[in-house]
């Protein structure tokens, strides 16, 4: 009985301490002050597991058409390149200032073997879900609110080719044919 009481007391004290910390305003929220390692790990794990779970059932359409690359490329250049960069660019004001740092999609991922088909379709599902739904408190918007699925899959198709593109290939593919700005 006394153990239960102690546990309840501990829980109440823990909750009170947590609430006190929340309301104290001591946690630094500035994007120029990194999270502690523990907080960073917790948030990264939360994000990765959540996206993996939510995107697991998505069906990936064929993603190798030239038309998809052209449509996705133009959209990427308009909507993503200022944060996620393009071939020949290593940083921008936004990529430097945002926290967490947006991934540089113009460079091949060092830690993943994207050549395997399974990895590639898992990556495609992941990209699609994140582009469509965005990520809370990260600066990544939910493009699905204003763009249909076909358009987002085209961006995924382009993203998968992006690390292999040279600056000149990128320039040609991402230029819009008409003079009207779409965004």
């Amino acid at each position: 009985m006394s153990t239960i009481r102690s546990l309840v007391a501990l829980g109440v004290v823990g909750c009170a301490a947590g609430m006190a910390f929340l309301y104290s305003g001591w946690y630094p929220m500035g994007a120029d002050t990194p999270h502690t390692k523990m907080t960073f790990w917790a948030l990264e794990t939360l994000r990765e597991q959540s996206v993996a779970r939510a995107s697991a059932e998505l069906e990936v359409p064929p993603l190798s058409g030239a038309k998809q690359l052209l449509a996705g490329g133009a959209d990427y250049n308009d909507m993503c390149a200022s944060c996620h960069l393009k071939p020949g660019t290593l940083q921008s004001d936004l990529s430097i200032g945002l926290y967490p740092k947006p991934p540089n999609f113009s460079q091949p991922e060092g830690d993943k073997n994207a050549s395997a088909d399974e990895d590639s379709s898992e990556q495609a599902r992941h990209y699609f879900w994140v582009i469509k739904h965005g990520i809370k408190a990260s600066g990544m918007p939910a493009w699905g609110l204003t763009h249909d699925d076909d358009r987002i899959w085209s961006m995924v198709a382009f993203l998968q080719k992006l690390p292999d593109l040279s600056p000149e290939q990128y320039q040609i593919i991402t230029a819009r044919k008409d003079d009207s700005a779409h965004h």
Partner: peptide, 12 residues
Amino acid sequence: PVMEAIMQQCAQ
């Protein structure tokens, strides 16, 4: 497909 896209883009 990248070259195909480039050719389509530059055809005109």
